[in-house]
Amino acid sequence: MTVQGIILLDIIGIAFIFWIISLVRHTRLYVGYGVIFITSIFATMMIISVPFLLHLITRLMGALFPASALTMLALGFIIFLLIYILTQTTILSNRLSRLVQEIAIRDAEQQKKNLNKNTNAFE
């Protein structure tokens, strides 16, 4: 990779890190997700910037060219994130369901009590 390419990608990476920090600060992104993103971006910047690391990763992944190794890494990261985010969505959905059920049950219990009161008063 050329020096120009490395500098450009590092600048983009730093911009992303600042953006993520800003999102976390304003509670628009959960700190746990922020850590995952910042770590991944930092690791990518390191791999791109240090030729030794780039060649090591290429060799470890059995790729002929660094670009192929980076593409495979990116694909793996995207799949991991998709599964992780869907897991979090499911957890959230379960919590929401429990909340909705709890509200419904409490409301029904109150109705039942009122109904019994009215029946007793009538009798």
């Binding site: 929401l96 369901s97 909705v100 059920q101 509200i103 419904a104 049950i105 409301d107 029904a108 109705q111 039942k112 109904l115």
Partner: peptide, 12 residues
């Protein structure tokens, strides 16, 4: 109908 109802606020 004045029946005891548990209402889900959204479709579950």
């Amino acid at each position: 109908e004045n029946v005891t109802t548990a209402t889900h606020l959204c479709n579950l």
